[in-house]
């Protein structure tokens, strides 16, 4: 056998060894990554994350040109949002005002789908220029002790609006400031809460919502 042939045979052996090494490396990498992914998933499931903390993109029917339904919406909230869609399509401002107020009530006064005091419901329906003020007002008012309620009773046992009654819708105007007067509707509503361990006897269950036309978008400028 010539030297050339011997060398070729030897090279072929080395090359085969390299290929085997590569296969082993690939298998090792596959196993390592598999373990890492498993570790990440296991770590996530260990931390009992509150399901309501997840932000899900709503279905298309719950998004329109002006509003998007709130996080983890209840069935009642969805029903009123569909009414809002209908009113918007019909371009019936009074109906829109009524639907806006009802949607706000189901979002703001429902805590079973909330995550904490910062999670103030219905913010999108509040007069845009004063949303931050309303949020702070709520965190020190209606939402002030929500953390204690969540901690001591559990989110699932908190208030949830189960029905809203429209007592009247009156067209009016509203002075936003010294210079601005807007077309508005006073929407008089009352609502009921789900019976559960949270005592709702003294919790607010009625109000008049002044819904104003803010550059074509209906927004709540006052609650009384």
């Amino acid at each position: 056998m010539s030297e050339n042939k011997h060398r070729k045979k030897s090279n072929a052996k080395v090359n085969n060894l390299l290929l085997v090494l590569l296969i082993v490396t690939m298998l090792g990498t596959l196993v390592a990554f598999g373990m890492n992914i498993f570790k990440i998933v296991a770590k996530e499931s260990e931390e009992e994350q509150v399901k309501t903390a997840e932000v899900e993109k709503p279905e298309n029917e719950f998004i329109n040109d002006f509003y998007t339904i709130g996080h983890n919406a209840t069935e009642l909230n969805k029903e009123y949002f569909r009414e809002l869609n209908t009113a918007l399509e019909a371009q019936d401002q009074k109906a829109v005002a009524e639907a806006v107020a009802k949607c706000f009530v189901t979002e703001y006064y429902t805590w079973t789908n909330k995550d904490g005091n910062y999670d103030v419901g219905g913010m999108q329906y509040i007069y845009t220029n004063d949303q931050r003020d309303f949020e702070v007002y709520s965190r020190y008012g209606f939402y002030h002790d929500m953390d204690l309620y969540i901690s001591q009773l559990g989110t699932e046992n908190l208030i949830e609006v189960t029905g809203v009654t429209v007592n009247g819708v009156t067209e009016t105007s509203y002075d936003i400031d010294d210079e601005t007067t807007a077309t508005a509707y006073d929407v008089d509503l009352s609502w009921t809460y789900k019976a559960n361990s949270m005592d709702t006897a003294d919790v607010q269950n009625s109000a008049v919502f002044t819904v104003v036309d803010h550059d074509g978008r209906m927004e709540i400028a006052a609650i009384d």
Partner: peptide
């Protein structure tokens, strides 16, 4: 101890 949620009475103005 927690209090009953305070009723809302608010206005943008």
């Amino acid at each position: 101890s927690y209090d009953t949620p305070e009723s809302v009475s608010w206005a943008a103005s």
